[in-house]
Design a protein around this nucleic acid. Sequence first.
DNA 1: TCAGACATGTAACAAGTTACATGATTTT
DNA 2: AAAATCATGTAACTTGTTACATGTCTGA
Lengths: 173, 173
Amino acid sequence: MTSQDVILGILMDDSHSGYEIKHKFETLFSYFYNASYGTIYPTLGKMEKLGLITKESILQDGKPNKNVYTITEAGREAFVQYLESDIQGVELKSDFMVRLFFGEWTEPERVIRWLERSIAKEERQIERLNADYERWKSHMSPTQEICIALGIANQESNRRILLEGLAKLKAQL
Amino acid sequence: MTSQDVILGILMDDSHSGYEIKHKFETLFSYFYNASYGTIYPTLGKMEKLGLITKESILQDGKPNKNVYTITEAGREAFVQYLESDIQGVELKSDFMVRLFFGEWTEPERVIRWLERSIAKEERQIERLNADYERWKSHMSPTQEICIALGIANQESNRRILLEGLAKLKAQL
DNA sequence: TCAGACATGTAACAAGTTACATGATTTT
DNA sequence: AAAATCATGTAACTTGTTACATGTCTGA
């Protein structure tokens, strides 16, 4: 899976600018994929050269021009090819879990602070995902529903385990 | 969190070679962090130059020499500084979830195959994590227990949601 | 006899982030 | 008056992977 594949997926049902694509990453998507402008803009340029997408410049008043990209037939074929390729394993990099693993090398009070902040973060995320679900569920595909259910269930399971762990650590103080 | 921080953490309670560090990544750790030899060896070299670790070459017969690294006082201080720094947010990159999100663009049979394979994978991982826990629980710290509990709970929640999703998709066929 | 464990290291390449550069409009 | 939104793009840098290079011993 490359950023090109993900951008093709976003352009499959509608044309978008680079700015809008970034927005989609942040709202719908950030839970399992993300990319910065420094990735998005050069990738769109490369994809246009490859003939996977076409660019249309839209003049706006008061705002900068918008470059709206539309997927081509070749782009659709490339996306289908991606869907037919082997699935890559998930990559997770969690600073929080690394610290937890090495938690014995710092004061219990600090570890407790880590846990409390992490729990608060999980709770904010659960609320955000539930709100996202409420807002978009009417036009979400069945597989997208599984996606968001995975996210919510994960965050709820994290919350539960962290609360249990926190209670145990506090009992040992 | 850099690979240097994680390597320092591993060297905190015992000296190890690069090969052994890689092995630790793969067994204890791969769930939330990993690095290849191409990262480990150059990082160890850099850390030695910085005075964070010292190298001792051990001659072995029948096997290649082993470079065993030991953390220095400066290394311990650097590790403590890492533990005092801000926690970085988790980074997740999941090809599986991206495909699920775009699942409407391919045949339902393919999506069902993705789900079935993913469920089988989660089940293997759950067994592996449980086996790891049984093997190491006697010398695991309380925070390490939280770590492994997070991993197991996550994988079990994924399994549950995927099974539910699979049933729904099959019903719609 | 062949795969896998043991063991280190480099070079080429790929991928992605951050910071910089620019600037009007709208909301707080 | 400041911050956020809208909008694009590049250059320098960081980080990391993959493949190559080398070689023995052990167990299936």
